[in-house]
């Protein structure tokens, strides 16, 4: 009789604790965006909770002696389990998505400077625009990460990486075109002649590779040192006239060495641009109308300091970092050969 009474009282209690736990779990699931991250589990939890609440309401409206919360207790327990599974799953998926998004964002973060560095060699507006779009996508991805919208962050990062892939394809195409162009024969001849001269005289010679943005110092066919350089704003383009901001290509000599105070650019090695060959080419270009008749050929091309900016910024000169100029100047003298080419063909090097 007593047991029957106890059972009756026990069964007359609404399963409030389980209901409360289930609701708390559903709030956690909602905070973890459970509907998007674990849709089926969260749908099952919502369904179970709704059924449990309905059963509790139905029982609570009955007269106290006829209330029976057995089914409500079963449903509440089911709802609690389903809600906790939904919350756990949503949090787990969120953690996985976060890790994936952060990894893709990091990929993009590390790839942008690499491609930007490579883009310097191609100097192309479409490439620059692709890189900027990748940077914008990176900004979007970072903002999405802050809002815990990891799928959006991943999508934005992937968009950024796609822009970079397009940029790299364009850079490769530009470099390939440059490497296989008709000027390659001339560059090969100049580089060989310059290295032969060094082998013959034992003197140091300078080779400037415009595409790689490098200045190499050779002596007797051996490379002594190389430095990164900045070029004219026009990048790898061939110089045709004064003010085109292009670095000329040709075989030159150092005609003057200027120290600190004698140049705006720390130290400078003046070269004999324009030489006879440049003048002849300039006349030809004017004759065929590629250069207008009022244009000048230009002058004052130097190898000077204040470079190291990882950017082409001069009016056609070759700029080195000041420390590199300090290192280079004692190794050369008046008359040292300076050969500037689009790129040094690999087969010409010893």
């Amino acid at each position: 009789m007593a047991a029957a009474c106890l059972l009756a009282v026990a069964c007359a209690q609404a399963p409030l604790a389980d209901m409360e736990t289930a609701r708390a779990a559903m709030e956690r699931a909602a905070a973890a965006d459970g509907v998007a991250r674990a849709p089926e589990l969260c749908a099952a939890a919502h369904s179970a909770l709704a059924r449990a609440e309905a059963e509790v309401h139905v029982q609570s409206r009955r007269r106290f002696w006829s209330r029976d919360y057995t089914e409500a207790a079963r449903l509440a327990y089911t709802a609690r389990l389903a809600a906790e599974i939904c919350a756990f799953r949503a949090a787990a998926v969120r953690a996985r998505q976060r890790a994936g998004a952060l990894s893709t964002v990091q990929d993009l973060e590390t790839s942008i400077p690499r491609v930007a560095d490579l883009a310097r060699h191609a100097r192309d507006e479409v490439v620059a625009s692709d890189i900027l779009n990748a940077e914008i996508a990176l900004g979007e991805a970072r903002s999405a990460v802050e809002k815990q919208q990891y799928e959006r962050a991943r999508e934005a990062s992937k968009r950024g990486l796609a822009h970079l892939a397009e940029a790299v394809t364009d850079i490769n195409r530009i470099i390939d075109d440059f490497n296989s162009g008709p000027r390659r024969i001339v560059w090969t001849k100049w580089v060989k002649a310059t290295l032969d001269e060094s082998a013959r005289t034992g003197e140091a010679v300078i080779l400037v590779d415009k595409l790689r943005r490098e200045l190499h110092l050779f002596r007797r066919q051996e490379e002594i040192v190389s430095y990164p350089v900045d070029l004219g704003v026009a990048g790898v383009a061939s110089k045709t006239h004064a003010g085109d901001d292009a670095t000329p290509e040709g075989r030159y000599r150092i005609t003057e060495i200027r120290g600190p105070g004698q140049t705006h650019y720390y130290r400078a090695l003046m070269i004999d641009y324009p030489n006879a060959e440049d003048r002849s080419r300039f006349r030809r270009l004017k004759r065929v109308g590629q250069v207008s008749s009022d244009q000048e050929i230009g002058s004052l091309i130097e190898i000077h300091g204040q470079g190291g900016r990882s950017q082409d910024w001069t009016k056609g000169c070759v700029a080195l970092d000041n420390d590199d100029m300090d290192d280079l100047v004692p190794k050369v003298h008046l008359g040292t050969a300076v050969t500037i080419v689009g790129t040094i063909p690999d087969e010409t090097l010893p």
Binding site: A29, H46, A50
Partner: peptide, 18 residues
Amino acid sequence: APNEFQAADQAMRAAQDE
């Protein structure tokens, strides 16, 4: 409002089942 909508949708489905 996906969370609220799913709660409504699931309650509706449960009602239809019932």
